[in-house]
Simulated assay, not measured.
Amino acid sequence: MLDVLLSHIHNKVDITEDQKKQLQSFFTFKKLKKKQYLLQEGDICKCLSFVSRGLLKSYFSDEKGNEHINMFAFEGWWISDFNSFIHQEKAVLNIDAVEETEILMITLQDYDKMLSEIPVMDRYFRILYQNSLVTKDYRLIVSNSYTAEEKYLQLAQKSPEMIKRVPHNLIASYLGLAPETISRIRKKISLNNT
């Protein structure tokens, strides 16, 4: 179960066999059924979670009950309501399973202990946080300056797996578009490819 995580870590930093063995003590395993919550708005986010298999979505709901998707987490991705996790405050995000999912979870106490005992993990997470900031900045630019079709095409180019695995109504929410707009764009692309 730890193999996906260890591979992900190894792609970012060099880690010894002893450190790999030591990592096991910090994580717990959990399975989620499709549509099962990992976190609900108002709860405290007790764990940072790594997706070993499956797909999760992070979102908030507006006053009308509409979902606004913040992110998807595929295999090899981390997910949490990070403010809630770090500050142990009430979560503003919901996280649930789009598919049956297997995750590795680490508590804040174990996270801090791991960073202290295995310093290379501090570097690993710094790299992840830097990449996350770059991605969020880019997503904000796309969201504010691209047309609906450009948003969809950019997503299809950068994340073809998302287009294949994620239901189109959820992609619409993620892009801030109506599901009908996604259908119209997909139809136009299909016609242009024939």
Rank of each mutant, 00 (worst) to 15 (best):
Y37C: 08
Y37Q: 09
Y37P: 10
L39G: 10
L39P: 11
Q40G: 07
Q40M: 10
Q40D: 08
Q40A: 08
G42F: 05
G42Y: 01
I44N: 05
I44V: 13
K46S: 14
K46T: 12
K46G: 07
K46V: 05
C47E: 15
C47N: 15
C47A: 13
L48I: 01
L48P: 03
L48Q: 03
L48T: 10
S49M: 07
S49N: 14
S49I: 11
S49H: 05
V51I: 12
S52M: 08
S52Y: 02
G54N: 04
G54A: 09
G54E: 02
L55F: 03
L56E: 06
L56Q: 05
L56T: 06
L56K: 02
S58I: 10
Y59I: 07
Y59A: 02
Y59S: 06
F60T: 13
F60V: 13
S61N: 12
D62L: 06
E63S: 14
E63C: 10
E63F: 11
E63G: 10
E63W: 09
K64G: 06
K64I: 11
K64C: 07
G65V: 01
G65L: 02
G65S: 00
N66A: 12
N66G: 03
E67C: 07
E67P: 05
H68W: 13
H68I: 13
H68R: 13
N70W: 13
M71Y: 14
F72T: 10
F72I: 05
F72W: 05
F72E: 07
F72K: 04
A73Y: 10
A73N: 02
F74E: 09
